[in-house]
């Protein structure tokens, strides 16, 4: 359903267990073993980060809002869970996902504009023929089974910011953490509200203040205990809670009352934290070269 995540195709068809996703990817590689061995690629998160940056460049040219870019990133991730990347021109897939996402997020852009702006950004990989992008659109939609409506965590964040009396800063930080989660597999693994809660949790606890860290530690402890009760909330030993701690406590109480799967939220947090860690090693040049190599060698840009 369009508004109901529980009945959505996203939940029914595009949410996997880690094992299932790994299996799908393994099969994809096994089917193209030679290709995969011939053209090594960086860690998937580096690739995703690379795509993210490229998409942002394209988005900036059209002043496209974040949510459309997020949708495009999901399309790309879904597509590459069905199609071996080395059989495609990732730049064309990117531009196409962008073009399609803009239509679905009600900010349509003309196909000619998308092609010409893409060509300016990636002149070696995009030719000025719009029919290439049009064809790729068929490919994308077909692989996604026309399931194009995406539920994003932004909506949950917006509806929770008041409930949890978050400051504007907290919300912005959570928002940007959500932006970053598109570089991971989390969108294929967890429902959007779990991701939103994770982002809120991280935003409230990652504040580089001593208080924030204490709160984080205590919340983490609380979260990992199975008998989570808000009243047992530790970490308030001195009896004076600062505002940040109060917010975290709000969140913990709210989590305890709700139906949110806390274990999932914990796993999400870990994934996001390790993303930030891994991305310290990001090297754009490597991504560019390795993608360029198979595209050029196989003539996929033509």
């Amino acid at each position: 359903m369009a508004a109901d995540y529980w009945a959505s195709t996203q939940r029914r068809h595009w949410q996997f267990s880690r094992e299932a996703l790994a299996e799908i990817r393994q099969k994809l590689e096994d089917d193209d073993r030679a290709l995969v061995q011939q053209y090594p690629l960086p860690d998937r998160r580096f690739l995703s980060h690379f795509f993210n940056l490229q998409l942002a460049k394209l988005g900036k040219k059209f002043m496209i809002r974040q949510q459309a870019l997020a949708t495009a990133q999901i399309y790309i991730r879904r597509f590459y869970s069905k199609v071996e990347i080395r059989r495609t021109n990732p730049y064309l897939v990117l531009a196409t996902a962008f073009y399609l996402a803009c239509k679905m997020e009600e900010c349509p852009q003309h196909i000619r504009m998308v092609v010409s702006e893409s060509r300016q950004l990636w002149p070696d990989f995009i030719i000025s023929d719009v029919s290439k992008l049009g064809e790729c659109e068929f490919y994308l939609i077909s692989e996604m089974n026309s399931q194009l409506i995406i539920h994003h965590p932004y909506r949950t964040l917006q509806s929770l910011q008041n409930t949890l009396s978050m400051a504007q800063d907290d919300t912005s930080l959570a928002w940007s953490i959500i932006n970053d989660h598109y570089m991971t597999d989390l969108p294929l693994l967890y429902p959007p509200h779990v991701i939103a809660v994770t982002a809120i949790f991280l935003a409230l606890t990652l504040k580089p203040t001593q208080a924030g860290l204490q709160a984080a530690a205590s919340t983490a402890a609380a979260l990992s205990s199975t008998t989570l009760m808000p009243k047992d909330q530790p970490g308030s030993g001195n009896g004076v809670l600062n505002t940040q701690q109060k917010k975290v406590q709000n969140l913990v109480s709210w989590l305890a009352e709700g139906e949110i799967d806390i274990q999932s939220a914990v796993e999400c947090s870990q994934e996001i934290i390790s993303l930030y860690d891994v991305l310290e090693q990001y090297n754009e040049k490597t991504c560019k070269e390795q993608i360029g190599r198979f595209v050029k060698a196989r003539g996929l840009e033509k």
């Binding site: 900036k60 002043m63 914990v266 991305l279 310290e280």
Partner: peptide, 30 residues
């Protein structure tokens, strides 16, 4: 145990970058 207790603060540069890309959260399509 929760990993980031020893992870202190996430690379803030990374987060800041998110705000610098000219794409603000609710940017209306002009």
């Amino acid at each position: 145990m929760f990993p980031y207790s020893n992870h202190a603060v996430v690379p803030p540069s990374f987060l800041r970058n998110r705000f610098d890309n000219g794409i603000t959260p609710e940017h209306d399509d002009p």
